[in-house]
């Protein structure tokens, strides 16, 4: 059961990597990397259940947090050109 889930997730990761290599704009690459990160969280959870070491779920949770923060930080950098500015209208 977990092998099937892992295979499906791996195929999705390969497709996401394809878009990362193809992507014409930088946003396509960020989108594909975001998808890859989400699938990484899933595959860490699946590996935890496959090997019976459920402590790995903590790593999956930490990876989900790091993935989201990283994506938002990279997007902010590409939108404003720096990290230290706020949204529209705020200095």
């Amino acid at each position: 059961m977990y092998t099937a889930a892992g295979l499906a997730i791996l195929i999705t990761m390969v497709l996401a990597i394809t878009r990362t290599l193809l992507g014409p704009t930088v946003y396509d690459r960020i989108l594909a990397v975001n998808m890859f990160g989400t699938k990484t969280v899933l595959i860490i959870a699946v590996i935890a259940f496959m090997s019976g070491r459920t402590d790995l779920l903590d790593i999956a949770l930490a990876y989900a947090l790091i993935n989201f923060i990283g994506i938002v930080a990279v997007l902010k950098f590409f939108e404003y050109g720096e990290f230290s500015r706020g949204g529209r209208g705020r200095p």
Binding site: A8, T12, L22
Partner: peptide
Amino acid sequence: IGGAFGIIGGVGIV
């Protein structure tokens, strides 16, 4: 269901 939707999403993103 989850694996099928994942692969569909991957095909869509490509």
